[in-house]
Design a protein around this nucleic acid. Structure first.
Length: 203
DNA sequence: CCGTCGATCTCCT
DNA sequence: GGAGATCGACGGG
C-alpha cells in the first residue's frame, strides 16, 4: 500500500488522526533492514492546551521543537533515560500536536525484530508498549525530525477501522496531568492482543 | 498474581 | 535534586 499523503498529517483534530492511524502500517528501513507493524493503539497529545503534552503551554525546547513544525514528521524522545518513544507530529506549523504509537501487530521482518530485542519467541511483549515497539523496529532518537514521507520511517495506508471496533480510554502514565489525565485520548482496536497492558486512570 | 525497584536522559525548580 | 508519555527483574503471597 502507498504511503499516507501529506494531507493526512495536517488534520487539525488530533483525536481524529489518532483514530485514523489505527490499522495503518508503520514501516522502518534502518541500515537496509525493513520491519513493519500494524498500528493497534495510539494516544493523542493536544499540544498547548494539554497538561500531559511536552508542549503544554507552548513550551519549546530543543527536544520539543519538532512538534512545532508541520505535521508529517517523527517526534522520538527518550523516556526515563532508556526508552525511545515514537510520535507522529500532526497539524500545521506552530501547532504542536502529536500522536504516540503504543502498540503494533508485527508484520514484516519478525526475525530482525527478535534479533533486535533479544527475544526467543514472538509474543505480545515484542511490540506491545511504546518502548518495546521502538526497539523492535529500530526506532531511536536518531530518527526524531525525520519526515514520514521519506525513506527511513513512514506509514502506509490501510483500510480504516470501523468506529464500533475502536475503544477509547484514559492515557497511560500521565497522572501528573491533573484533570487532563482523565481525558479519553487513548484509542485501541477492540480485543486486539497487541495492545499494551498499561492502564490509564479510571474515574 | 501483585508490588517494588533500577536504569540513567531531559527538563524543571 | 526530582520527576517523568516505560520495561523487566525480582521477591512475596
Amino acid at each position: 500500500m502507498p504511503k499516507l499523503e501529506p494531507a493526512f498529517y495536517l488534520e487539525k483534530n488530533v483525536l481524529k488522526v489518532a483514530k485514523a492511524l489505527l490499522g495503518k502500517v508503520l514501516v522502518t528501513e534502518i541500515e537496509g533492514v525493513r520491519t513493519s507493524g500494524r498500528i493497534v493503539e495510539t494516544e493523542a497529545y493536544n499540544g498547548a492546551a494539554d497538561r500531559a503534552s511536552h508542549a503544554f503551554n507552548n513550551r519549546r525546547t530543543q527536544r520539543t521543537e519538532i512538534m512545532f513544525g508541520e505535521g508529517g514528521a517523527a517526534y522520538v524522545y527518550l523516556c526515563y533515560g532508556i526508552h525511545h518513544l515514537f510520535n507522529v507530529v500532526t497539524n500545521l506549523q506552530e501547532v504542536p500536536h502529536a500522536v504516540l504509537v503504543r502498540g503494533l501487530e508485527p508484520l514484516e521482518g519478525i526475525p530482525d525484530m527478535l534479533h533486535r530485542t533479544g527475544k526467543q519467541r514472538v509474543d505480545y511483549t515484542l511490540t506491545a508498549g511504546p518502548g518495546s515497539l521502538s526497539r523492535a523496529l529500530g526506532i531511536s532518537t536518531a530518527l526524531t525530525g525525520q519526515s514520514l514521507l521519506g525513506s527511513r520511517i513512514w506509514i502506509e495506508d490501510a483500510p480504516a477501522i470501523p468506529p464500533k471496533d475502536i475503544v477509547a480510554g484514559t492515557r497511560v502514565g500521565v497522572a501528573y496531568a491533573m484533570e487532563d489525565a482523565y481525558l479519553p485520548y487513548r484509542f485501541w482496536i477492540r480485543g486486539n492482543k497487541w495492545v499494551s497492558k498499561g492502564k490509564g486512570l479510571v474515574r
